[in-house]
Simulated assay, not measured.
Amino acid sequence: MIIADDEPITRMGLQSLEWEKEGFELVGLGANGLEALELIRAIQPDLVLTDIKMPGLDGLALMELIQAENPSVKWVFITAYHQLDYAMTAIKLGAVGFVLKPTDPDEIMLACRKAKQMIEEDRKRNELELGLRHQLKEYSFTLQGMLVPEGEISKLNEVIAQIMDYIELNYMQEMTIAKVADMLHYHPDYLSRLFKKETGENFSDTLTRIRMQKAVDMLADPQIKVFEIASRVGIRDSRYFGQMFKKHYGQTPNDFRKQLFSRHDERGGHLNDT
Rank of each mutant, 00 (worst) to 15 (best):
A4T: 04
D6K: 03
I9G: 07
I9S: 11
T10N: 11
T10C: 08
R11I: 03
M12I: 15
G13H: 03
L14A: 02
L14Q: 02
S16Y: 04
L17M: 12
W19H: 01
K21E: 02
K21M: 02
E25N: 05
E25Y: 00
L29S: 04
N32C: 06
N32W: 08
E35I: 07
L39C: 08
I43F: 00
Q44A: 10
Q44I: 05
D46P: 00
L47H: 01
V48D: 00
L49C: 04
D51S: 07
M54Q: 05
G56N: 08
G56E: 08
D58L: 03
A61E: 11
A61D: 11
L62S: 06
M63W: 01
E64Q: 15
E64W: 07
I66S: 04
Q67D: 13
Q67W: 13
N70L: 03
S72C: 14
W75M: 06
F77V: 03
I78A: 04
I78W: 07
T79K: 05
A80T: 07
D85P: 09
Y86D: 13
A87P: 03
A87M: 09
M88T: 11
T89E: 14
A90P: 03
K92A: 12
G94N: 11
A95D: 02
G97Y: 06
V99C: 06
L100M: 14
T103L: 15
D104K: 15
D104T: 14
P105H: 09
D106Y: 08
I108P: 02
I108L: 10
M109K: 08
L110G: 05
K116C: 05
Q117T: 12
M118I: 14
I119P: 01
E120A: 09
R125T: 12
N126P: 04
E127C: 08
H134N: 14
E138W: 13
L143C: 08
Q144M: 13
V148E: 14
V148P: 04
P149R: 10
K155C: 10
E158Q: 15
A161C: 06
I167K: 01
I167N: 02
E168R: 15
E168M: 14
Y171V: 03
M175C: 04
I177Y: 07
K179V: 10
K179F: 14
K179I: 13
P188Y: 11
Y190A: 15
S192E: 14
S192P: 05
R193G: 08
F203R: 02
F203E: 03
T206Q: 10
T206K: 11
L207D: 03
T208Q: 11
R209M: 13
I210F: 14
I210D: 12
I210W: 15
R211Y: 04
R211Q: 06
K214Q: 10
A215E: 10
V216K: 03
D217M: 09
M218P: 03
M218C: 05
D221G: 05
K225M: 09
F227N: 15
G234L: 04
I235M: 02
I235C: 00
I235G: 00
S238N: 13
Y240W: 09
K247P: 03
Y249V: 00
Y249G: 00
Y249I: 00
D255V: 12
K258S: 10
S262W: 09
D265A: 11
R267N: 11
N272Y: 13
